[in-house]
Design a protein around this nucleic acid. Structure first.
Lengths: 238, 238
DNA sequence: CGGCTAGTTGAGCTAGATCAACATTCGTGG
DNA sequence: CCACGAATGTTGATCTAGCTCAACTAGCCG
């Protein structure tokens, strides 16, 4: 049993922020600040404006499974359940748009285009969630790490020097991939030793051999989570 | 690496069946018959009328992750992607309603109630998929088996003698829980030895100690997949 | 009966977890 | 500026849950 994601920074609940455009509220988050919690009444829908926010669930004894790392443009909650089914916490300093849920039903009733786009997104989320299940259920540690790096690489958050940032901790990666932080560290360094990646600092890397890394990732599955890059027109709450 | 779900019964593609009510087609499936395959163009939506059908994905080397066991009333596909993102195969002799996808967009455009119900279902599916991810990523073999038996128990397919049927093979269970069939067998028998369940035959069991079994399941998470029991009114294609 | 499939059980083996140092970065205060 | 401590990351040594391999059993069907 493990329970290593400590609460060193007291996960205080984020307060309400200033008003943004769109009638929607904009909320700022410090690193490790909690936005909402699994089981709470779902009063709002959130979209990331800047930074990186993760969603996760906890087992009763504190084991954690991270479900997604959401970037600018990604939604943190979708769908129409009464309660949140995951918790959300900022990884870096972030800001999120907040849309009150009250409006949602009305919008859905009136705007069928909006509804169809929501269905599209949910469909995609579901596919991504199953991708992750296949990875957690059937891939080796090495394949998971390679998959994860391919995923980061394809997302393409490149720093000026052509490197890819790794903004989350080893612990976060471990809880996303169903491993321990030690194993995450070891496997990353094994890929480096194999010459498939460059790792000048712990939180920066570059893929040296895309095809071989993809090969190591187990392939066949794992369509990366490109969410916001779907080319699909942005949709807004009115 | 493992690849134990053999193709002993050649997974021939199911042919088109007879016409049912509703304008929809009804299709019969033999055990181990494949209904559709991951990556195929998604021309239809399916709902189980009788029997048990599973959905799954394969990694390129044949490792399998089963995502759901769908009973009467459950949908096999939801959402509006162009391609199926899972494969589906009958476990027992089954029949499924087939709704051509062509109609779907029109229905969604015209019937906002239908669209909202679809969103509800997708939302629930997504929550279930994340439940499974948490299990695969963070639960022990024992907890997974206990969770699975609790899930079967709560679904409540009781035989006349108050036993619960286990219609899928050990191999199927293993590929659902991310384990091997041997481990599945061992853990089930350990639960029996502990007196938490009765297992008069390999494919029949009874929960003797619901609270202790739930305890062994790791609790806290794992809301069972009650899909069809939501009390929510059935929705039909017109 | 004999062959086939599913299930059980035992005996190792190993990938990954656990435990334990140690290294590095970073922020804080003197 | 440096010293110090806290947080994060790396690495080694060991342990073990679950996998692998293998034998055996129990139904089932022709």
């Amino acid at each position: 049993m493990q329970e290593r994601h400590d609460g060193r920074l007291q996960p205080r609940h984020a307060g309400t922020g200033s008003n943004g455009k769109n009638g929607a509220c904009l909320q700022r988050l410090q690193p490790r600040e909690t936005l909402f919690i699994d089981g709470e009444r779902a009063h709002s829908v959130f979209r990331v404006r800047s930074g990186l926010v993760m969603t996760y669930r906890l087992l009763s004894d504190g084991r954690r499974q991270i479900h997604s790392f959401a970037r600018t443009g990604d939604f943190l909650t979708l769908g129409t359940g009464d309660l949140y089914t995951v918790s959300a916490e900022a990884i870096t300093e972030s800001s999120v748009e907040v849309f009150r849920r009250g409006k949602l039903d009305n919008i859905l009733r009136e705007d069928s285009v909006f509804g169809r786009q929501l269905i599209q997104r949910l469909t995609h989320e579901l596919s991504v969630a199953r991708e992750q299940a296949a990875m957690l259920g059937r891939k080796s540690a090495m394949e998971r790490i390679a998959s994860f790096l391919v995923f980061l690489d394809r997302r393409g958050d490149r720093t000026p020097d052509e490197l890819i940032a790794i903004p989350m901790t080893r612990n976060d990666i471990a809880d996303y991939l169903g491993l321990t932080l030690e194993t995450v560290s070891r496997m990353i360094h094994r890929l480096k030793a194999l010459g498939l990646i460059d790792l000048p600092r712990p939180d920066r890397f570059r893929v040296l051999c895309p095809p071989e890394l993809a090969e190591a990732a187990g392939e066949g599955l794992w369509q990366p989570r490109l969410d916001s890059d779907q080319g699909e027109p942005d949709w807004e709450f009115h």
